[in-house]
């Protein structure tokens, strides 16, 4: 058997293991979604956190092994790092929109006076 044949056989066993790991994480994602992490009404934050961690682990497996990003040329890695930076900006853009009022104890919809004040500030 040549070296490249040996390498390919090794790759196939990696792909099989990644496949099994992805199936395991899929089942785990579904099971975790039924767990209530907190008795309070804000339990959704814990569920989102765990859900995203598992999805990211699955995403890493696909990107690193199926898309060969664990062994890719710097040109592609740098392009993707730039994409990730822009992606994060895109994800937080709605937050920037709301940033002016962060930390302020403003009740937007509290009373007519408040609404009027905001209306005058904007215009």
């Amino acid at each position: 058997m040549s070296d490249s044949d040996h390498d390919i056989k090794k790759h196939i066993s990696v792909y099989r293991n990644v496949f099994l790991a992805l199936l395991f994480f899929t089942v785990l994602t579904v099971l975790v979604s039924y767990v209530e992490f907190d008795a309070t009404e804000r339990y959704i934050a814990g569920a989102v956190f765990i859900g995203l961690i598992i999805a990211s682990a699955k995403g890493y497996l696909v990107a690193a092994h199926f898309m060969h990003l664990n062994n890719e040329k710097p040109m592609i890695n740098w392009s993707l790092i730039l994409t990730v930076i822009f992606f994060i900006v895109l994800l937080f853009m709605p937050l920037l929109w709301d940033m002016n009022n962060m930390g302020k104890d403003v009740d937007y919809w509290g009373g007519e006076d408040q609404k009027l004040e905001i209306y005058h500030d904007v215009n």
Binding site: T29, A47, G51, I54, K58, G59, A63
Partner: peptide, 13 residues
């Protein structure tokens, strides 16, 4: 990859 994120985001959370 996109589906891996869509599935929990839309169906489970």
């Amino acid at each position: 990859l996109v589906w891996i994120f869509l599935f929990p985001a839309l169906y489970l959370l």
